[in-house]
Design a protein around this nucleic acid. Sequence first.
DNA 1: AACAAAATATGATAAAAATCATATTTAAGA
DNA 2: TCTTAAATATGATTTTTATCATATTTTGTT
Lengths: 143, 143
Amino acid sequence: MFSNSVKYALKAVLYLAIHSSEDKKIMVKELNKPINVPKAYIAKLLQELSKQNIISSTRGIKGGFYLTKENSKQNLMNVIYAIDGDYRMKSCMLSLSHCNQNKPCPLHHIVSPMRDKLIEAFNKKTIKELSLEIEKGITFLPI
Amino acid sequence: MFSNSVKYALKAVLYLAIHSSEDKKIMVKELNKPINVPKAYIAKLLQELSKQNIISSTRGIKGGFYLTKENSKQNLMNVIYAIDGDYRMKSCMLSLSHCNQNKPCPLHHIVSPMRDKLIEAFNKKTIKELSLEIEKGITFLPI
DNA sequence: AACAAAATATGATAAAAATCATATTTAAGA
DNA sequence: TCTTAAATATGATTTTTATCATATTTTGTT
């Protein structure tokens, strides 16, 4: 459902949500170990997220990646779509191109309601909310 | 969530459920076009399913693939696991190896209940039931 | 202004998944 | 028993995804 890249991206964004701010930028080399993702790989993903304004960055000395207040108000789905696009989440489970409510595939009635709920949940949940849950110890972001 | 291979396998199994029987075996070359899957590819998958007793087959002239009554009583999950194994369905959405109810990942509370329901539904639903729905025109198996 | 330290852009390489090809084995029918 | 038509076993090729590498640009500091 998620690509590896999205998994990494989500971990990185949540890490930034917890540890960074406009005054405390985080360099790739500080971030890759705690979230257990190869440095060059996460660097590329962060660059892409930055280009799409999901996260913020500044170059040069004292630079790094960080989340602004605005950034952290974004919902999960924005991060997911930025990396994977929407096909992965939205497409028919059997990849039948004409599958819809009128001409449902054999799995449609099983899968579709749950998937819709999942998408709705991802659309509602913000980065900020998730990061607060981690800070409160409700959820965890380990290896 | 599903590999391409599982998608193809499910389509093929459902096609066999509808069109085959012990008296009416279906050859690869008859089946690949209606379900829109490359011949050599689906052949390999059918061989694997046959080896795992998900479907039945006989070789030689008048041979082909088919489903016995027993075969069609199997549930969806058997087909899925036969091709993809269980990791894909069961693993943490962020691939965190220690994610569980006690140490849930940031997405666990969103994803886990729905995934469990999905797995339950796939475990309950048999090939036969799905194929009946297709035959009744409740669902469709087009391209 | 020059330097150093960071992200950025670009693309190369490696690994995995998807796809294709073919020689071998088996079963039915003449 | 020979031939033919099917699955089977095996593995090669292609495509996609994941991973790694590096030259360039930018920015703060001296």
